[in-house]
Amino acid sequence: MADDDSMNGIHDEVPEIELIIKASTIDGRRKGACLFCQEYFMDLYLLAELKTIRLKVTTVDMQKPPPDFRTNFEATPPPILVDNGLAVLENEKIERHIMKNVPGGHNLFVQDKEVATLIENLYSKLKLMLLKKDDTKTSSLMSHLRKIDEHLERKDTRFLTGDTMCCFDCELMPRLQHIRVAGKYFVDFEIPAEFKSLWRYMYHMYQLDAFTQSCPADQDIINHYKLQQFCIFIDPYWKNVKMKKHEELETPTFTTSIPVNVDIN
């Protein structure tokens, strides 16, 4: 297992939380493209910035898991949270543990049914579009993004529920990154420049260490979908798919800037 450095400058009496995440499917060491891993990484990073915890992030190559990982967790895939020797293995239990047991965690998990409904099923619409691009699936994703854009315009705040980040932002932004990177690569989909409030939101997120430190490389997001089951099938819409993992030879890149044709002012 590869360890990232814990966040420094925090007193020893602050509890250490370890988050085990999936490693890159390209090099087996850097951060992989698991959405849940990035979501909880962001949650915990925000708490570490507030100095309520010390955060240790460990990457595990699931293609070659080390013996100590197999001994401790058998076949359980990350994300896995370890708090004072207690391993929390399931996504819902991880959320509940952060909310109830991790210092400061309750502040991240706000109640907002409108926002919860707003971002629900966004990822499934991306996967449907990637499976086979057609006007219906593209329009469905576009309509969903438009609703988020309209919510942000009405709200007129930096984040989904206000001017402070919460769990919903840690859930939404990794999905928007996958839409941006994988959508462009596989089916030439781009978030429209007219969604100014959505782009402004992404701009603010790109300024935050919680996102940039947890964000996988573009190549890892692309390879994540190449390894999905639907990549096995030959489809004329997948014109850009190359099954050779040429990403292994590339220097990792990170799409974390706003396109020049987007006006966020």
Rank of each mutant, 00 (worst) to 15 (best):
Y206F: 15
Y206R: 07
Y206P: 02
Y206K: 08
Q207I: 00
Q207C: 11
Q207K: 14
L208C: 10
D209V: 02
D209P: 03
D209I: 00
A210V: 08
A210G: 04
F211H: 07
F211I: 06
F211V: 07
F211A: 03
T212L: 05
T212E: 02
Q213A: 15
Q213S: 15
Q213L: 15
C215Y: 14
C215F: 13
A217G: 02
A217Y: 01
A217W: 02
D218W: 13
D218E: 12
D218H: 13
Q219Y: 01
Q219I: 04
I221G: 01
I221K: 05
I221H: 06
I222M: 01
I222H: 02
I222D: 02
I222A: 02
N223M: 13
N223A: 15
N223H: 14
N223D: 10
H224D: 04
H224I: 03
H224S: 08
Y225M: 03
Y225G: 01
K226W: 00
L227Y: 06
L227I: 07
Q228D: 05
Q229E: 05
F230P: 01
C231R: 12
I232H: 09
F233P: 02
F233V: 13
I234D: 13
I234R: 11
D235H: 14
D235N: 15
D235E: 15
P236C: 08
P236Q: 10
Y237V: 12
W238I: 00
W238T: 07
W238E: 06
K239C: 11
K239Y: 08
N240L: 04
N240W: 00
V241N: 09
V241M: 13
K242N: 14
K242G: 02
M243D: 00
K244D: 11
K244Y: 07
K245F: 04
K245I: 11
K245V: 09
K245M: 10
H246D: 12
E247I: 03
E247Y: 03
E247P: 00
E247W: 03
L249H: 10
L249F: 08
E250K: 10
T251I: 10
T251Q: 10
P252T: 05
P252K: 09
T253N: 12
T253M: 14
F254W: 07
F254T: 01
T255R: 10
T255E: 03
T256I: 07
T256C: 14
T256D: 11
S257G: 08
I258R: 12
I258E: 08
P259S: 01
P259V: 03
P259M: 00
V260K: 15
V260W: 08
V260Q: 13
N261Y: 12
N261K: 09
V262K: 06
V262L: 08
V262H: 09
D263A: 14
D263R: 13
I264K: 08
